[in-house]
Amino acid sequence: MTNMDVVYPILMGAGVISMILALFIKRKSPIDSDSATQTVRTTDKAELEKSMQKISRQLKQENERLSADVQDTRADLLQEVQQLRRRVEQLENQAKERLPIEETTEVKVTSLPKESVTEVDMLALRERYRRAFELAKEGLTYDEIAKRLGAGRGEIELIFSLAAKNERGQADA
């Protein structure tokens, strides 16, 4: 036999003996454990109530502090709103004072000469007319053409009536 073969039975015996002792000790002091448990429970209740009261006081203090902060912030915001309103009124008054001056000044466009502006307008009109005729060839009504081109029905009718007169004039020549 080796040393390990002897150690296992000794450890097992010690474990069994300690379990038996634990059972006897528990059976012997059930009255003591109940009174100890009641004392612990009473102590726990008292500590719990104190903790709850402490937390309650802290919450009340925190609530009061937050309420004061909210009131301060609200007062600050109201002051800022009043300042902004005064500033808007000042700017509106300044704008009213400047308005007559701006009305008398002329706005000059120097980016394009007059001929090129009319050329650009004519090109845009020609494209619009071309598109109107294409849509008419597709069989759309005047209302549908007007919606697609973003124009009024009267404008579309005018385009087609002028085109019809122009075609008659060319046919006569």
Rank of each mutant, 00 (worst) to 15 (best):
I55D: 09
S33M: 10
I20M: 08
P100S: 07
T104C: 07
Q79K: 07
K54F: 14
D5G: 08
S18H: 02
L48T: 07
R87S: 14
R27D: 06
R148N: 09
R65W: 05
L78M: 05
P30Q: 13
A22I: 03
I10F: 02
P113D: 13
F24M: 14
L158K: 15
Y8T: 05
E80H: 06
L140F: 08
V16Y: 12
N93R: 15
L149H: 10
M4G: 05
V107S: 08
N166C: 03
K54W: 12
R86W: 09
T141H: 07
E115W: 03
I20G: 02
K165I: 12
T105S: 15
E157W: 13
L78R: 06
D5P: 00
V16E: 10
N166V: 11
K60P: 00
K114A: 12
G15L: 08
E64D: 07
E47V: 14
L11A: 05
S67V: 08
R128T: 08
P113C: 05
E127N: 08
F24P: 01
Y8V: 06
E127S: 09
R148K: 12
N166T: 09
L21D: 04
G169A: 08
E157Q: 14
S29P: 00
L11D: 04
A68W: 01
R27V: 08
L162I: 11
S18G: 03
R148F: 01
I156A: 02
E127W: 00
Q170R: 14
Q94D: 15
L162F: 14
L23G: 07
E80R: 10
E106V: 07
S33D: 15
S67H: 02
V120C: 00
E64V: 02
S18T: 11
Q90N: 09
G15V: 08
L21Q: 05
I156K: 03
K108T: 10
E97F: 04
A95P: 01
L84H: 04
E103F: 04
E167T: 07
L162S: 13
Y129E: 12
R57K: 11
E167Y: 05
E47R: 05
K45D: 13
S111R: 11
R57N: 14
E102M: 10
I31L: 05
N93T: 12
D72L: 10
E155C: 01
S35H: 15
T105D: 14
T37V: 10
Q71R: 10
K60R: 06
D44F: 15
E92R: 09
Q71N: 03
R130W: 03
E92Y: 06
Q53P: 00
L149T: 03
Q71W: 00
V6S: 05
A136S: 12
R126F: 09
P9C: 06
R148H: 04
E97C: 00
I156S: 03
T37Q: 13
A171Y: 04
T2M: 04
S161Y: 04
A46E: 14
K54V: 07
S116L: 04
K108W: 01
A95K: 13
E119A: 08
E89L: 06
T42Q: 09
S111V: 08
T2I: 01
I31F: 00
T73C: 04
R153L: 14
A151S: 10
Q38I: 11
Q94K: 11
K28E: 11
L11M: 09
R74N: 03
